[in-house]
């Protein structure tokens, strides 16, 4: 006897208790998601228009979080920036996790040469540092939003693949998979009905973490001038534009940074406070 059997297992539905910190994280994520959706209708000033006579204007009644290096309203630019940062990252993470997870499950279930080939190739891809890959692609093709989305997605496919494959390999050794195989079930059934329901929790938690990585990488690329190109600007690009305001602590350079931090920290907080069952192995 190594474990203590608890009567808790008898309760009908497992209680997914998410604590306060996790809820706060979730609320902030929801806030930015909604902003990203409705930004064009709530911004106080048109994003591209110079409305303040001063540049790097301070916080005021008129401009809630100041103005940028040209005198444009920062609040409007940050709210619109959410569209690019959240939107691009979300699409990229969805593509990379979808491809990675599907390939990972196929590799785990098929095994043999297909598994070896996929694993070897994607592991090799993984040993190109992510920022470097971004730099090389942008250098060769130039930066546009579709290129960014695809690049970010491709960079994180190997990680999503490796994670999903490891989970699926564990499940694949379980007897219920053997039972299904000897019943005569095909690969598609094994993947969708037997494996996926058992790995979906950790996979979603992993998607959250990967979303954070993508937000950070996108911001980093934009900060280097290789991400979202003017006249559009995501949060990383806003920091770059206004870096001249750094020596005197202009709000125009501080607030975009804060926006990035709130998003990434809250995703991490949410994941860290998920029930252990889902969080397992997602470290």
């Amino acid at each position: 006897m190594t474990t203590i059997e608890t009567p808790a297992a008898k309760s009908r539905k497992p209680a997914y208790r998410t604590n306060l910190v996790g809820l706060v994280g979730m609320a902030i994520i929801a806030f930015w998601a909604i902003i990203a959706l409705i930004a064009p209708w709530i911004i106080p000033y048109p994003v591209g228009e110079i409305v303040d006579l001063d540049y790097f204007g301070p916080i005021s009644q008129q401009f809630w979080i100041g103005s940028d290096y040209l005198g444009r309203d920062m609040l409007s630019r940050i709210l619109m920036g959410a569209r690019y940062t959240v939107g691009i990252s979300l699409v990229a993470v969805s593509i990379s996790c979808f491809c990675g997870v599907v390939l990972g499950m196929i590799a785990a279930v098929s095994g043999g040469w297909l598994d070896t080939l996929l694993s070897r190739f994607l592991d090799a891809m993984n040993s190109i540092p992510s920022k470097l890959f971004g730099l090389v692609v942008v250098a060769a093709v130039g930066s546009s939003i579709p290129v960014l989305v695809l690049t970010l997605a491709i960079i994180y496919i190997p990680g999503a693949f490796r994670f999903a494959r490891a989970l699926a390999v564990n499940i694949n050794t379980m007897d219920f998979i053997t039972v299904a195989r000897t019943r005569g079930e095909g690969t598609l059934y094994l993947i969708t009905s037997e494996i996926l329901p058992n790995i979906i929790g950790p996979v979603l938690a992993d998607l959250g973490l990967r979303f954070v990585f993508i937000v950070l990488l996108l911001s980093g690329l934009s900060f280097l001038g290789l991400g979202v190109q003017p006249p559009y600007a995501d949060w990383g690009a806003l920091v770059r534009e206004n870096i001249g305001g750094l020596p005197f602590g202009a709000p125009a350079v501080i607030f975009p940074s804060i926006a990035i931090a709130t998003l990434t920290v809250s995703v991490n907080l949410l994941i860290d406070n998920l029930p252990q069952k889902i969080r397992d192995r997602s470290e």
């Binding site: 954070v212 950070l216 911001s219 980093g220 900060f223 990383g236 920091v239 870096i243 750094l246 602590g249 350079v253 940074s257 990035i260 931090a261 990434t264 920290v265 995703v267 991490n268 907080l269 860290d272």
Partner: peptide, 17 residues
């Protein structure tokens, strides 16, 4: 967690600041 969650350029700019 806090540090992992912020981009490197933010740490750098904060350090400069």
């Amino acid at each position: 967690i806090g540090i992992i969650s912020v981009p490197e350029f933010m740490i750098a700019t904060s350090a400069v600041l």
